[in-house]
Structure formats: structure tokens, C-alpha cells
Design a protein around this nucleic acid. Structure first.
Lengths: 255, 255
DNA sequence: CAGTGGTCTAGACCACATC
DNA sequence: ATGTGGTCTAGACCACTGG
């Protein structure tokens, strides 16, 4: 089963391939495909390296290298002695910090409380269309959310989603869910957030935001715009966060 | 030569090691040590994998894995067919973006012009001492610098360095150097910047900064504080940049 | 051409988790 | 005891670079 024609199964790479691609890259592509189609679901174990090697008729080392890259891209998680598992947003709390960069100024870790304010339906304008790879006029959802750190309102998010991918999303359904927002998206709608690009600017607080974050009007805020991508670099979320840096900051590591 | 006692040279890992460390990690440590001591200088080729394997009496695959990690940490650069080279800040212009996150809003790449305003000598206060792992009262250098993008003044940096590591740094000497600031530090003082932690806040422009960046007083600015580390996670630079986001932004990728 | 890093194999054994 | 990922070896051949 799972017969897939590799470029040249038991042999080394093909003799005269126009565009040469290493075997392990091909394997990686096939594995990614299975992840994408949901053949293996988040949190589940994928077959062992030995199994996969047999399926693809390659050595274990080749499968290993493919999985190494997937693990490096956070698509799967290796656990010695147990197996390799499809990554998920619903696991450890500590993995939340992967997409959450606001930290306390004193360096302490702190998990914010999330309050969904409302969910609105609307239609994409040209800008949103460009960001989310949709046509202007396509249906979208707009979520507004407040993050509180130790009770202090700190981040006001406006989250724009393509309605087609999140049918049936309501405030009630979100409130009933336990866990992070990306966990919610993953388990309820099968949309897995894999990577994001952020652009940060400094702005001044407008009256509405100032009140929500309890800062003076005109106070300086971080404006963090994020586009989040799922498989095949498909954009599926546009988010604009306004953040007060009264007692928190945006943390980043350059390496 | 280069006889180093590995935990158990030709054999597999030691039988009953209290704290087990893979062979390739030990190799990696030895290689890092040579990089740190300057035995191999930036831009130079290190010995081939075969050579190193022979030196350490391990297989090429083990050396390879060690070097893979060093390459992943940007300590070293592999070039197929040529060799493996000690990483340097003086090479390609494109590698500059590794430590430079301000981008144009339209997405175009643009290299800023750097103007060193002045160099002052001073003594560390308690805060700086903590950041740079020095005692309060130790000698420091403070550089002020302006970055212009397409002529527009955009970033005003204040850079604090331990004077002991940068003896003889003057404005004249910097102005005479062609290339990036980290290239200057590397070639002139042998200090290699490897990793940095940044904290970003939103602030309002004070009069002096407002004039330098040609923005209105009280305009919102990004305040980017950076601590930069060299080998062994030793902090060697503290930097505070004030950035206008009039036509640029701070770019970041989450993955 | 020779030398370098890059890929692949086959097989061995270790460390960890589970039953 | 078994099965998983993790490490290590030895050897082969490919792809790229430069003389």
C-alpha cells in the first residue's frame, strides 16, 4: 500500500534528472502531503521510521533525515522511545510562547487571559484580499479580543479570517473551548497555523483602544500586524494587535 | 597532533557515563573551542570533514553532525565543493539583514547608510553593568549612530560597549572602515557577534530624538533594546535604537 | 583531474518508554 | 522483552568547485 513512484526507488538518485532533488526531500514532500491531507491528525503518532523506510523502499537514515527537517519546521515532534507525533497547538502551555511574543519586563513568564469581545461577519476589502489571497468581497470573520496579563489589559487584537475556512465560528463556540485560539482553530476547524510574518510599528492610541487598554489617549502603542500561514504557505489569518508596553515588551531573538 | 581525550575515542559512547553526552556533541565542543580561541579565523576554511574525522578518530558522519549544528548556529558556513568556512560579518551584504530588522513598508530591500555621530568614554552604571556582566564603574564606550534609509533618518542608535574589549576604538577609525559595524568589531577587535536578544517597546520622541529623526515631538517611536552575545553567551554589546515607523517597520518571522 | 561537501545504504548498538 | 527514536560506523557514489 501507499505505493508512490519515487524518482528511482531502490537505486540512488536518477541518472540524468533535469532538476535533481535528493531522495530525502522527496520523502519529506510525501510526508508533508499526508500531514496536509489529514491522513495523520494532530497529536497522533506517525508510523515508525522503520515502517516508513519499508514503505518507501529507502533506508531508515533517509527517512530520518526527512523527518529531521519536518521536526525542524515544527510540523512533527520527536519523542525518544515513544515515536514521532504530528505537532499540535493543544499540547503544552509552554509551546504557546511560539506565537506569543509579549513578555513581562521583569522577565517572568506569564500566561495572559484571553477574552473574546465579539465576532462579526463582513466582506474583504482590497487590502485584506491581498493579504489573505482572497477576492475583494469574499466573506470574512472579524474577531476582537483582549489579552490580560495579571489582570492588566495589554493587547487588543483584531483577527481577520476567511469565513470559508471557519464555518460556524461563533463567540459561544469559542467561549466553550478550553485552550489557546490556535488550538481552537486546529481542533474545531482543522486549520493548522504553521508560520507567521509580523510587521511592527509604533502608533498612538485612539480613543477606543485607549479605553480598552486603560492608557491615556495618544499613548504610544505597538502595532503588530501578522499574517499567518498554513500548509503550502497559504495565508489564513490576518491579525492586528495593539499593545501597551507599560509593563510588557515584545521579545525577539536574533540568531 | 591535536590529541584530545574524548570520553572514549574509537569506541561507541562510554559504558556507564554519569552524564552522557553524544560523541558529536563533544566534537562540536572541541570545534567551538578552536573557533573561540581564534585558531581558525573568520573567513578561513576549517579542515575538511575527513581530516577532522581522522584527527578525532571518529567517523566522518560524526564530524558531519557536529558541523551541521555549528552551521545551524551560524558559527560556520558550508560551501559544497569548496569547504567549510568560519562565519564572518564582512561577507555578503545580504547577510547584514540577519541583525537588521527594519524594512521598508513596501517590502523592498534597502540597505541603510550608517553615520557615526560620536564616540564617548564613560563608566558603567548598575543597569549597564547587569546587562553587560560588568561591575558598576567599569569603563565603557558609548557610540551614537544614525541610520538613513534612502536619505531619510530612521534609526537613532546608542551603542554601549565594554571598553576593555574595544581598546583604541575612535570615530576616525570607524569612519575609515568599509562595511558594517559588526564587521568592524570583528576585523578590528576580534569580537564576533553571534546572537542577540531584543526587547521592543513603544515610546514617544523626546526633543533631541525628534529632531534627529525629523519627526514631530511626541511622535510614537519603536524603542528596540538589544543585548548581543559572543561565544559562551558572553554579553558584549548593549544597544538602544529609537526607530520611526513612518515608512519602515520591524520585521519578524515566527516559526 | 582531485578534493570538498552532500546523499544514501546497511548494520550495529544505546537510551528511553511501555508493557 | 519489545519497540521507538538517537548515535555511530564504514563505505559507496553524486554534485560542485577549482586547478
Amino acid at each position: 500500500m501507499s505505493e508512490v513512484a519515487l524518482v528511482s526507488p531502490p537505486q540512488y538518485p536518477p541518472p540524468e534528472t533535469p532538476s535533481f532533488q535528493p531522495l530525502y526531500q522527496q520523502i519529506k514532500g510525501l510526508l508533508t502531503q499526508r500531514l496536509e491531507t489529514g491522513e495523520w491528525r494532530p497529536g497522533q503518532a506517525i508510523p515508525s521510521e522503520q515502517d516508513l523506510a519499508a514503505q518507501f523502499s529507502v533506508s531508515q537514515g533517509t527517512v530520518r533525515k526527512a523527518i529531521d527537517e519536518l521536526a525542524g519546521e515544527n510540523l512533527v515532534v520527536r519523542r525518544q522511545g515513544k515515536g514521532t507525533f504530528v505537532a499540535t497547538h493543544t499540547e503544552t502551555k509552554s509551546s504557546m510562547f511560539r506565537f506569543l511574543r509579549m513578555r513581562r519586563n521583569d522577565g517572568q513568564d506569564e500566561y495572559p487571559a484571553s477574552e473574546l469581545i465579539d465576532v462579526k461577519r463582513s466582506r474583504a476589502n482590497a487590502d485584506i484580499g491581498r493579504s489573505l489571497d482572497m477576492k475583494a468581497g469574499d466573506a470574512i470573520l472579524i474577531l476582537r479580543r483582549l489579552l490580560r496579563y495579571g489582570g492588566e489589559p495589554t493587547v487588543l487584537d483584531e483577527i481577520t479570517l476567511p469565513a470559508a475556512l471557519f464555518k460556524g465560528l461563533t463567540k459561544e463556540r469559542f467561549d466553550a473551548y478550553e485552550g489557546s485560539m490556535y488550538g481552537f482553530f486546529e481542533t474545531e476547524f482543522g486549520v493548522r497555523m504553521l508560520r507567521a510574518e509580523e510587521q511592527i510599528k509604533a502608533v498612538t492610541a485612539d480613543p477606543v483602544t485607549a479605553e480598552a487598554l486603560r492608557v491615556g489617549m495618544g499613548s504610544p502603542l505597538l502595532c503588530v500586524e501578522r499574517i499567518t500561514y498554513t500548509y503550502a504557505d497559504k495565508p489564513v489569518e490576518f491579525r492586528r494587535g495593539l499593545c501597551t508596553t507599560r509593563s510588557h515588551h515584545y521579545a525577539n531573538t536574533l540568531s
